[in-house]
């Protein structure tokens, strides 16, 4: 499997793991994706194989409860905010200035969050799917990938993943957070090495 294909699938898998659990999607998309990646040699193999997918409707429903508790419903506050802006723009801010970076990349690609999803562009699922989409184009969108990674994903998902691991009561989300943390860290190292530039450069590029 080509490197860009693996990256695309890893990001898509991570996006799916943090989307609202849905039996059909888990069974027919995420589980096969994980199986495919788990059979491919590489540093991601262990993390992917460790994913404890739910067995049966009851476990999926349990996962749904945990999803709501962690990311959606709140009594006072959400244990883990799934929006990048929360981590990047100050912790009382949603729809803050950092959202514009993601919106611009999406617009350049002719994409937007589907209305039915109810998600903002900087939701973890949107950002990871956007990264998967960029990766699927085999390096043609490397500058956009870099902007998205260095200005967004690499800057907030480590904190997000730690928050998930600290707050979750489900092994599934613990494993998902670990996989995402490792995926983003590997991506960061790879892109920095290949392109020899840093996050600060990406900022300048964006401003230009």
């Amino acid at each position: 499997m080509a490197e860009h294909d693996i990256r695309m699938k890893l990001h898509l898998l991570c996006a799916g793991l943090f989307a609202e659990p849905e039996a059909e999607h888990l069974e027919h998309v995420l589980r096969p994706l994980a199986a495919e990646l788990g059979q491919t040699d590489g540093p991601w193999q262990e993390g992917v194989r460790a994913l404890p997918f739910p067995e049966g409707g009851r476990e999926t429903a349990q996962l749904g409860l945990e999803y709501n508790r962690l990311f959606v419903l709140a009594k006072g506050h959400v244990p883990v905010q799934p929006y990048g802006g929360y981590w990047l723009d100050g912790k009382s801010t949603l729809y803050g200035p950092s959202l514009r970076t993601v919106e611009r990349i999406m617009a350049a690609e002719g994409l937007e969050p589907a209305q039915a999803s109810g998600l903002a562009p900087d939701h973890v699922v949107c950002e990871l799917e956007l990264m998967a989409h960029l990766a699927s184009q085999g390096g043609k969108k490397a500058p956009l990938e870099k902007t998205l990674l260095f200005n967004h994903l690499a800057r907030w998902t480590p904190d997000f993943c730690r928050a998930v691991m600290e707050n979750t009561r489900e092994e599934f989300y613990c494993a998902a957070a670990k996989l995402l943390e490792e995926t983003v860290a590997r991506d960061e190292a790879r892109l920095a090495a290949h392109m020899g530039r840093t996050a600060g450069d990406a900022d300048e590029e964006e401003q230009a």
């Binding site: 898509l12 699922v125 799917e129 998967a132």
Partner: peptide, 10 residues
């Protein structure tokens, strides 16, 4: 994306 359905983007 790569033949796989997204959950959020359109």
């Amino acid at each position: 994306v790569g033949g796989y359905p997204a959950r959020a983007l359109a």
